[in-house]
Amino acid sequence: MIHYLPILILFFIALGFALTNVGISEILGRKRPTKEKLTPYECGVEPVGSAHERFSVKFYLIAMLFVVFDIEVVFMYPWAVAFKSLKLFGFIEMLIFIGILLICYFYIWKRGGLEWE
């Protein structure tokens, strides 16, 4: 675990640096707020409604597909590390695994899960 200590140090330095940056402009920058300055930018006209609106369901779908496929990727990493000792057995195992993955992948494709119209 000793090898992870420098990462912790770096993390705190980076955090300190980022927080200093946030703080320093708070202190140095002048503040003259007006009502117009504090409204969200919308091409110069009065903002219409709230910005927290509903957005396309496509993005949820992408997020879900990402979770599924990313787990496959994470699963492949230990396999890749051990590949030299698994030899042919490991290759056939991965062939089956990727085969099942591809069936699901083409199912998603055919059902229109990857389309952006």
Binding site: P40, F66, D70
Partner: peptide, 18 residues
Amino acid sequence: SNNKYSLLGGIRSSAQMI
């Protein structure tokens, strides 16, 4: 940000990055 452009940009960015 409570800005429509920001929201769209943020969502697009994250979808692209993932």
